[in-house]
Design a protein around this nucleic acid. Structure first.
Lengths: 221, 221
DNA sequence: TGAATAGTGTCTGTAAGACAATATTCC
DNA sequence: GGAATATTGTCTTACAGACACTATTCA
């Protein structure tokens, strides 16, 4: 009997002025060669100690991105999703700042608005939609959105990110209270960002211990 | 090259007076034949349209349980977890009432307290701990615990379930306010349960539309 | 000085928790 | 009636959101 096809797919998300984007790449091989699709690939039994390592390898190979926030999303499987046969895709999602994408080595990254996805091969649309739903859901009560913000950022910038993900304006005082009680940020000494004729904003960075782990809030927002 | 081993494991959870229990079965085959382990099995490419169907088939075959609340947990993988080779286990968790377990056809179900797990083969301890953490986490802000409560139950019973999962006493008035605003229960006309010399409690059941889907709360508890 | 946004203090309304009163059963 | 638990009403407290005031920059 044909063995089950075991693959990894990565939903690489970033935030641009226009909104949330997913990275798509032109497929090199059949099936669907030439079509835009999620970065993905086979699990290499000899190189990959586990699926997470495979995900990091695939992401690095396809985009040159090395240490993103990366989390397992879900596993998509079945006889119907791939014409080659019964297949498993262990899907991960990665969050990076727009800056990281710009610096990435891959020339062919197509950043596509997640609200206007083109037709995609396999069940990649479902996978992206699942990732976006997960991100939006976790934005309600965790530090997850910080990973879209880059190495340093101001509180107003961070609030705009949360607002974009949650789809509603947030109260400034409440937002700052929450972020403050999460205790995930540290101010950058003497770091300020001026964006025009007004008071400059303090720059912050994620505390080391929250670069990989999330902080969850008891009560959301 | 040897193909990747593709399996399903089920964390079947139920609530007994002593606390939260996971169902373990004696393994029929090597490796670890005779040891207690999670119900699991290979994906059958010919019989199973997808992993969820495989999970339902495995659970039914091993325990006779047919339509539990079932949700994908995570996928565990790697070269090291199974002596036979590089393996994938797509893990699901199922929640059923103690009554369902009692009625199940399988004779050999060992209900083991999740707080005192024995040594287990593979990474089954990790899988169970992940499932329990997921259940406890989702108990904070969803209708998930209702699936441990059986076909009909009183509000005091449901509150005790939530309290057991969350590990803290809950305010009665708040709990009822929350459950009421979730709007997931319907009273059973004329259904009351008396448990002694006191006022009997109204019996409720989950509304049909929440038997498979969860209801999430904006603000937890 | 005025415009613009950052950051903070304070008030108010809402919602969660404490307390307690009432309801219903069995003995 | 008394004990026990269910159910509901109400008060208090804590927290989220509204509002507004101060801070700092550039033109």
């Amino acid at each position: 009997m044909k063995p089950i096809i075991c693959t990894i797919d990565i939903v690489l998300l970033t935030l641009e002025p226009g909104g949330l984007k997913a990275a798509l790449l032109k497929r090199d091989h059949e099936p669907h060669a030439g079509a835009l699709a999620l970065p993905g690939g086979y699990i290499h039994e000899l190189d990959d100690p586990d699926a997470r390592s495979a995900a990091l390898r695939v992401l690095d190979n396809k985009t040159g991105i090395r240490s993103p926030y990366l989390e397992q999303l879900a596993t998509f499987s079945g006889a119907a999703r791939d014409p080659r046969g019964w297949s498993i895709s262990i899907a991960y999602y990665a969050l990076v700042s727009a800056e990281i994408i710009r610096q990435s080595s891959a020339a062919g990254i197509a950043l596509t608005s997640v609200d206007a996805l083109p037709a995609l091969p396999f069940d990649h649309r479902t996978i992206i939609e699942t990732a976006v739903a997960r991100l939006r859901s976790k934005s309600q009560y965790s530090s997850l959105p910080c990973h879209l913000a880059g190495a340093q950022f101001t509180l107003p910038q961070l609030q705009r990110i949360y607002e974009l993900l949650m789809g509603e304006p947030l109260n400034k005082v409440s937002f700052r209270r929450k972020i403050s009680e999460m205790d995930i940020l540290e101010p950058i000494e003497g770091g300020f960002e001026t964006q025009g004729a007004h008071r400059p904003a303090q720059l912050y960075r994620l505390k080391q211990e929250f670069r990989e782990e999330l902080k969850l809030l008891e009560r959301g927002l």
